[in-house]
Design a binder for these strands. Structure first.
Length: 198
DNA sequence: ACCGTGATGTTCT
DNA sequence: GAACATCACGGTG
């Protein structure tokens, strides 16, 4: 039996994504990302994010570039920006800021909540701790791929919502991962991790 | 536990 | 041709 999450959750409105990208990246921690797919539904609590601030951020794919690959970043906020990395894995991002400002938040990790059995099948592992603790892994676990490029996260297929059970946590900020090429921006504290309070 | 390496496709030089 | 917002695996401690 497949749970219909749209009856339980309400997608965050576009205004949530239209403000400052760092604020969005921090605010997404503790939120629940949901994917209702043909195979079934999966969801998880967002535990790690990264901010990419576009035109003033050499680490951003959209730094001084507007190509087919990054074009969705130039559209309105609250859309899925998906890219293929290392020829194998997909990374799931959400566009932020106003139209024309190519900013985005990378969802780097989730804690699986719903559809865990489906995640195990997709990931070909039973190790729950490693099911979705990385950007490529969470995309694989949730069945997110290039077909979701540009999808509107205010819709009902792929979206973020306030979880049913809120938890108490703090936010740790540190350097972003694997952007040594990014010059003056390489040490910006744009990576945010959810640290649960004891 | 950490480290090195190979996998693999799209984009940009 | 090189680089890449990554991961799994096998080796060594």
């Amino acid at each position: 039996m497949v749970t219909d999450f749209t009856r339980i959750f309400k997608a965050l409105p576009r205004q949530f994504y239209e403000t400052d990208t760092i604020t969005v990246a921090r605010s997404l921690l503790g939120m629940e990302v949901v994917h209702n797919s043909a195979q079934g539904s999966t969801s998880g609590i967002i535990t790690e994010t990264e901010t990419y601030t576009g035109l003033n951020d050499p680490a951003s794919h959209s730094y001084k570039i507007n190509s087919k690959r990054v074009s969705v970043q130039y559209r309105q906020s609250g859309l899925a920006y998906i890219f293929l990395i290392y020829g194998i894995y997909f990374c799931f991002n959400i566009t932020t800021g106003k139209a024309g400002s190519p900013e985005a938040v990378l969802i780097r990790a989730i804690r699986p909540i719903s559809g865990i059995e489906l995640m195990k099948v997709r990931r070909k592992t039973d190790n729950i701790a490693r099911l979705a603790n990385g950007p490529g892994k969470l995309s694989q676990a949730m069945g997110i791929n290039m077909s979701h490029y540009g999808i509107d996260l205010t819709g009902s297929e792929l979206f973020v919502a306030i979880p049913q059970n809120t938890l108490s946590f703090e936010i740790e900020a540190c350097k972003r991962v694997n952007i040594e090429y990014a010059g003056y921006a390489k040490d910006f504290p744009y990576r945010f991790l959810l640290r649960e309070k004891a």
